[in-house]
Structure formats: C-alpha cells, structure tokens
Design a protein around this nucleic acid. Sequence first.
DNA 1: CTGAAAGCGCTTACAG
DNA 2: CTGAAAGCGCTTACAG
Lengths: 333, 333
Amino acid sequence: MKKKSVNAMEVARLAKVSQSTVSRVFTPGSNVSEKTKRKVLEVARELGYRPNALARGLIMNKTNIVGLAMRDIENPFYHEVLGKFTKGLRDRGYHVLFVYTENDEIQQEEITQFLEYSVEGVIVTDAYLSSKVVSQLHENNIPVILFNRYSKDIPCYSVSCDNYAAAQQIARYLHEQGYQNMAFITGRENTSTSQDRQRGFCDFLQGVGMAPIIEKGDFTYEKAYEATLRMLAREVRPDAIFGANDITALGALDAVKAKGLSVPDDIAIVGFDNIKMTSWPSHELTTWEQPVDEMIELTIDTLLNDMKMGSVEPASKLVSGQLIERRTTKKKI
Amino acid sequence: MKKKSVNAMEVARLAKVSQSTVSRVFTPGSNVSEKTKRKVLEVARELGYRPNALARGLIMNKTNIVGLAMRDIENPFYHEVLGKFTKGLRDRGYHVLFVYTENDEIQQEEITQFLEYSVEGVIVTDAYLSSKVVSQLHENNIPVILFNRYSKDIPCYSVSCDNYAAAQQIARYLHEQGYQNMAFITGRENTSTSQDRQRGFCDFLQGVGMAPIIEKGDFTYEKAYEATLRMLAREVRPDAIFGANDITALGALDAVKAKGLSVPDDIAIVGFDNIKMTSWPSHELTTWEQPVDEMIELTIDTLLNDMKMGSVEPASKLVSGQLIERRTTKKKI
DNA sequence: CTGAAAGCGCTTACAG
DNA sequence: CTGAAAGCGCTTACAG
C-alpha cells in the first residue's frame, strides 16, 4: 500500500546530476554551483522531495531531537512551560520527543525511548530522576538537565527559580505588612521546590522570632483545601497563608472564603508561579512570578552548550523572579 | 568528544555470533535458539546495547513516531488531552513528536518537520489545517486525524464530541428548568466546536420559540468576562448563560458575581468540557462532560487503522458525553 | 537455527 | 564544482 517516498536518487536522475550533488544542495554551506542548485531545487519541488531526517541523523550522528519528560499534573504552569520549551527548541532547529511520566520517577521505559531514538539531550520537568537513570544517559553521552528541580545526589545540570530566596522574601514581605501568625502549605514533600520554599520561609521567620504553622499538601487544590480547613480548626488560626504553588494558594483561598472569612482582612494568602488564573478578578492572588522565559532560555542554552562541550562540571543555576502584589494581601494597620 | 555508542556488530563480536543474529534477538518473533539468545542478551546488557531506532526505522520504513500538533492555549482541557494521547500512544508502542502551533493554522514548518521525520500519522488538536497541508501529508501517505475539530472542505478523519447534540440538550435542560432568556458566549468563531455548540443551542431554542442573545468570545476568560459585562448592561439581561467552553463560563461566572448578582438565582451558567477546575467549591459549575478517554481511544485507533488500511473513506466520528449538574443552575419555581 | 550480503536514504572524504 | 564509493546501524530474503 505504502507508496515509496521520493529519495535523493530519484531527484538526481531527473535533474541529471549525481545523488551526492542533490545531497549537497540540501546541505547548507556545501559547494554547489548556482545553476545546478536551481535545477535540483526545481526537480525536488516538483517531486515533493525532502531529505529524510532519519537517514541524515544516522549518518551524521545528530538527530536534532531533544527528549522532554514531564509529570502528569494539573498545574497549568507546566503547560505553559511545555509550550515555551517546544517553541524555544524549534527556534534552534530541534524537535521534541515528548514523554509523560505517570509516576514520580522517570521510568526505564522513558529512558529507553530516549536512548533508542538517540536524542541529543533530555529535559526533565517536575519529575524525579534516579541517579541510575542519569548515569545511564550520561554513559550514552546524552546530557540531562532538570527544570525547576534539582538533587544534590545527582550530578546533573539544573535550572530553577531561587525558591529559597524567594520564599524568604515572601516571609519578609508578610512580616513587613504586619502579619503575625503565618502558615505554609507544602507541595509534594519529596520535591526540592517545596522543600526550598518551606526552608526559606521558615528560616526568615525564625530570624524574626516567629515559627510558622506547617500543613502538608501535595501541590493540588484539593489537598490544599483540606489542609486549610484543618488549619482553621486550630485554636489559633493563621493570619497569613503561603501556598507552595498557586494551585495550593487557590485551594486555601477558597477554603478560607468557604468558612466565611475574609481575604485579606482575616487571612492573607500568597501563592507561587503567577499562573494566568491568579490574575482573574475572582482571585487576584498575590504571588511570586517565576521568570519563565528566562528560565526556559537558560535551560535550553545550557543543555545545548553541554551537548557541544562534552562533560562540563554540572551546575545548578538559579534565577530570581519577583513578588506580584495583588488583592489577597494588604498592609495591616 | 562523542563516544561512539555500541552497535550490533560489537555485540556480535563479543557474543561470537553474526550481526544478523544479534538483530534477530532484538526482533520479536525471529528464529533464534534459546541458548544464543541468552548469550547475546547478556553481552548486550553488559555493553548497554540498544537497537538504534533510527536505523531500524530507516530500513523497516516504520518509525513508530506519531506527530501531535496543538495550538498554544490556556485551556487546561487540552493539557489533559495531550497527556492522555501521549500515554495512549505509548501503550501502543508509538512515540510522540510534539509541535506547538503559534498561529491558528498549522504552518508549513510543522508539516515539514513531520515529513522529514517520517511520522506515521498526525493528530491535530485545536488547530486549523488547510486542505493544502492535508493533501501534502496524504501525498506522502501520512494519515491525519483531527481531534475535536473538523472541516467539511477537508478530506480527513476527525473525532469530536457531538457538539451540536450536546448544545441542544443543554438548551433543553435550561428550558426545562424554567429559564426564559438565554445567552450564548461564543468561542473563536472559526472553530467548528464553537459553531456547532452555537447552532445546537439556537436550533433547540428556536424550536420552542426563543432566540438567545449571542455575544462574541474567543474561548478565553478575559473575553468572556467582557462579553458578560456587555450582556449585563443590556436592557433585558439574560437569566442563563451558556459558555462555549468552561473557561468562558468561568469568565461569565466571575463577571456576574462581580456585578453583585447571584448565581444561579439571578443568572444560571453552563460550561462545556468539565475541566477539573469546574468542580472546585468556588465554581461548582454545571457543564457538559466530554468523554475524553473514549475520544482519545477512538482517535488513536482510527489513526492506527487508517495507517494499516491505506486510504479509507475519511469519516467524522462523534461521541456523546453528558451533562454534569452542579450549583450554577437550578430548577426555577 | 545461523551467516554473508544487499539495501534503507543519506553525508562526506577522496579524486578529478 | 562534481561524481563514485564507503559507511551510518539496522532488517531480511537467501542459502545452507
């Protein structure tokens, strides 16, 4: 059934040149006379010829494919991230082999996929990577970079928001606004993101003689909602809640409202990510903006440089971001 | 710098067999003795050998790659869809070459990408496809399927929710609840999705002697918010609003609330998609659930069958879904 | 059950 | 500037 697709040989025949010449026409920087080039291109267009990327990848040992692995989550932040990675990579001539991981950890199956297709690099977002998997990739000379996640145990590049510093600043901000009794709702606790945000928050508060309430969440709305209800049932309830991400903060916001309390008068709320929804009139959430574009660029550039240079010393790169003040916080008098 | 990765030849040498035999060991269904197989597999494991998918794809004329194109939108529905496609395809042994389209229409660049990598099929979601592009793909024997979109002009499979019938049922439901003056906020008007939902809604109402207010939206929260404010400024304001998707309905919901009106007492609201957010306590949106899993399965199966059978007559397949009744509608007394 | 050989569609020294 | 030839890593008749 399959009609064989046209190949360089066929074009060569019709254009009365050798197949090598056809190949050169499609290789930027090759030596071909203007005249032959035109002729070949014309025939190619007529036939609908296009060089086969697989064959090219095979011979050049360069596939122009980057593997992108992402956990399956509801956080729209990562949807945005995915889109920007795809565009950024395309602009640099790379294609995206996409993989969803169902478990926390990237599975052997996904890695096999990347290996078999000879991806030139792997970007991992919001998923955990065992060091075994990383070394497997490294043994095959495939650089790996973690986006918004890192691990001290794993020798691997990473780009993240400086979650620790950001959380400190959020704590300082709330403190300066006059809040007295703060709370933090965690994300999934095995993530560096959640850990760093918690540490930064607590460390600052400790410095001013405060200790926040900590409730467990998992980055989802539902868990945050429940965590908030638990908090509100305590003897002393918090007057400010910092959620490990925006979705968490929105869950807290709704729980507070559901209890008939007012935001920010009774309780202030701060999120993290600055996803689009936070600016909706019904939320107007104060949050921390991650400089997504910058992070994406940095990630891609680091990965591509790593590809070229071979094994450079892995490093964690941090970017800052800024507080976006909206209506869920205010200066207490 | 690049260390050459191990190939079948190397394994063959160490296992003292021919390269053909190594290949057979990695080809399910090939004739190899248990003993040789074990020996080869052991050497392969030691060396970390894995068949090169590019070379295999080249010789077998089968890449196991499917192209997935998606518009860059904020609708979380499509995030979910992407995840499920990726998983569904992986379960069937296919890999996903992912592409974001920035414009409404799929660009030549994306198609070229698919063509060069010899994808075995293309799934297009929430993006428009010109017939030129489709025929280009078809000329190269690459089947195409549209997900939740179709076009009469384009000879191409599609799988959608039966938007027309669903919208009719929504209209019937609102009518039965006693609403008198209904409104529809459109999505992007060049999409079949929005058009069909509008037609179904209007057709039913016309049948019972009503004509809904139509306001223009584009599937975003912001436009829906504005559209709703415009509606509320009218002399007679609607008592029920149907949004072209959930995000639209949420925009309407917030606008109504912002005006101090009560939902559903003053105005009822219905969305479409049943994205996760609609069940949040702060929304509790009545909406239409698209049977996503079923749609994904159907799409993948249709595409893969099409691959095998060659060009069958393109058909549009429709699935139903159901109304999810929550708190933004109620029976009027 | 196994090996030698041809060939998938390309790139790239090598010669001219 | 161009062509003939080797080779990327595989699969698969063909012969034994």
